[in-house]
Amino acid sequence: MGKPKVATTSLAGCFGCHMSLLDIDDRILDLVELVDFDKSPIDDIKNFTGRVTVGLIEGGCCNEHNVHVLQDFRKHCDILISVGDCAIMGGLPAMRNNIPLKECFDEAYLTGPTVYNPDGIIPNDKALPLILDKVYPCHEVVKIDYHLPGCPPPADTLWEALVALLSDKPIELPYELIKYD
């Protein structure tokens, strides 16, 4: 039997949670001994190569592409984890959730103080994924098995949770490792 596989992605996030994963410092060498990375920005594999044990999701869903990626992760991963506040509650991108979409677009592309857009076009190329009406937490789109809050979750939180899962132990995080900021 090969090593268990881990996949990661950043949806509507800032890659801060991925940076936090890299913050496990030299333990990353232990992690590489423990797992193989499948689809992930860390190894730049774009598509799943097969079944994956643990999927780490950073960021919530702000457009249809995010939803497709998240559904793809759910399909391929045995265990799916929402990592960070954006995946869990939408995070900063969700600040637009009580502003009508039209107003957001107008501010971003037409009326904002630093906007230069003489043609007054709001980007509408077919290649661009459609923006959702709101930013959705991941667990409101697919079933999520675990949540690791934080902005970002500390490296130790990610390490402890991953090691526990991969060695079939319950995740028991000390008080200091569960924080919302």
Partner: peptide, 9 residues
């Protein structure tokens, strides 16, 4: 870790 209810925003 995460509330079970939907966010109302």
């Amino acid at each position: 870790a995460a509330p079970k209810h939907k966010y109302l925003f």
